[in-house]
Amino acid sequence: MQEPKKATRFSISGDWGGAKPKITKELINIVFDIVEELFGKKLNYPVLITNFPLSENPIACYAMKEGCYQVNLSASSGLSWCQIVYQLAHELCHLNSNYSDSIGHKYKWLEESLCEMCSIAVLIALSKRWNKTAMYRYDRGYSASVKKYIESLPSMIGYMPKNRGAYLVWFDSNVGRLESSCDNRELNGVVANYLYKNVFSIHPTAWNCVGMLNKWNCHQNLNFTSYKESWREQCNDSMEVNTVLNAM
């Protein structure tokens, strides 16, 4: 297999279930476009995207390979477009949030929640612009399928705090569970949905703050309040980070 060149954004390998590579790459290009719009930047290195249909979960690997990030997906096939978008957007968010700079700290649940939120945001953007993408010629009515997929996500149909007060009550009751397991999808989904609807869908420049995560030794933060202050400092006390933190 030919490794991706430095000038490319990604290459694909693995089992894509008979889907035409050209179409799969067109879809992936759209995901990259949307994620780059959200974060306002491109990744520093290309991404080697490998699909393992029988794998339990997708993952952004900590180790790089020949100058490339490694992302492993677990889409059932290359024809499962929504699933590919959902998984890839999540993993690209990890790459954009400096996931490997500070590993294993107890506040990783926030990164996981924000990556779930990234999947939501990318799918919503895709549903709105489908008719103007290169994929439109392959299925002109697929935007409706994207909308149905979004509505079926656990994070979109689970508990949704009505306001900040309700969120804080929920958070106080669940912070222990969040810190003990960063990838509790039920809890991450609550955080993702709440922050998307109350902050990020209204203030899209807040994504700049996500790109500042993990740039310090998060293990030094003794509690979540301390962690938030470190994040605020990394963002130079910007309006965006204060908008996010004021909601939390």
Results as ranks from 00 to 15, higher is better:
V175Q: 14
K5N: 11
Y107Q: 13
L54T: 14
Y227L: 04
E111C: 11
I150L: 10
L153F: 14
G67P: 00
D183F: 15
E233L: 06
N131G: 05
Q220D: 09
G141Y: 05
V35E: 10
D172C: 07
R177N: 14
I202E: 13
S152V: 01
P53F: 01
C209T: 15
G14C: 01
T205F: 02
P204I: 08
A7V: 12
C218M: 12
V122T: 10
K215Y: 08
E3R: 14
M212S: 11
S76E: 13
S77F: 02
A75C: 15
I202A: 01
S113G: 09
T225C: 05
T225K: 10
Q70A: 04
S145V: 06
P46K: 03
R129Q: 09
R185N: 08
E37Q: 13
V31A: 01
S173P: 00
I23T: 15
Q70C: 11
E66I: 01
N44K: 15
F171W: 12
C209E: 15
P204L: 08
Q87M: 13
R9I: 00
S145C: 12
Y159K: 14
L195R: 10
S201V: 14
R185V: 12
A125Y: 03
K215Q: 11
A19M: 06
S180P: 01
Y107L: 07
S155T: 12
P154V: 00
S80H: 06
V122F: 00
A134H: 14
N223K: 08
L153A: 11
Q220N: 10
G176K: 13
V244P: 09
M156I: 04
V146G: 07
N217V: 04
I59R: 15
S119V: 07
R164V: 02
E179K: 13
N51C: 08
N51I: 06
M64P: 03
A247H: 06
I12F: 00
N217T: 06
K128V: 12
